[in-house]
């Protein structure tokens, strides 16, 4: 989507978001309903613009282990949900790029996160990058992703869904997905 690596777009942000939204819609034939900041940053203009463009969720926050439906300015609940991601320990890039971990160590860490979240209140939101450098594109690292997905799939009572499906699930019952105080 937006490919800038920082998020200092200033007052031009709505215009640029709309432009990239149109490009992606034209390319795929379907308007995207989800957004994730390329830099992990947002401004006060981001969410209002995304909502105006018809988006249903944002996946850029790192402040919870559960989805939460935004409060609306009118006082009720918005038709927009935050699906927090974990770019610290359910991501490939930080471990490979900064942490200098082996693929086997990353797999072990992901499984520990999954098992810990399964017994507390949270959902697994894994982020992987297809590139070779610090992502999961090479055979050893792709195998770690594969092994993690097998582990998850072989665990009973767990369902793998898309973010759009999760967003609709929450927005169908917003009272159950209010933000924690």
């Amino acid at each position: 989507m937006v490919t800038s690596t920082s998020w200092d777009l200033g007052e031009r942000e709505p215009e640029l978001l709309e432009k990239t939204h149109c490009i992606l819609t034209d390319l795929t034939g379907v308007a995207p309903v989800g957004w994730c900041s390329p830099s992990g940053r947002k401004s006060r203009l981001t969410i209002p613009t995304l909502r105006r463009l018809g988006y249903r969720y944002d996946a850029s926050e790192k402040d919870d282990d559960l989805p939460y439906v935004l409060d609306d300015r009118a006082g009720g609940l918005a038709d927009f949900v935050i699906l927090p991601n974990n770019t610290v320990s359910l991501d490939d890039y930080p471990f490979y790029h900064t942490g200098q971990a082996l693929a086997s160590e990353v797999l072990e860490n992901w499984i520990e996160e999954f098992e810990a979240l399964r017994t507390s209140d949270g959902y697994v939101h894994l982020t992987v990058h297809p590139m070779a450098g610090s992502g999961s594109g090479t055979p050893a690292r792709a195998a770690a992703v594969d092994a993690f997905l097998s582990h998850v799939s072989n665990t009973s009572g767990v369902q793998i869904v898309t973010l759009a499906e999760l967003a609709e699930h929450c927005l169908d019952r917003p009272q159950e997905w209010r933000a924690r105080p």
Binding site: G40, K42, R44, E61, K62, D63, D64, D65, A179, R180
Partner: peptide, 17 residues
């Protein structure tokens, strides 16, 4: 503070949980 979102808002995790 009103400009703290996303990766600048990891701290909110401490408050919530």
């Amino acid at each position: 503070e009103e400009e703290l979102f996303g990766r600048l808002a990891h701290g909110r995790y401490a408050y919530r949980i």
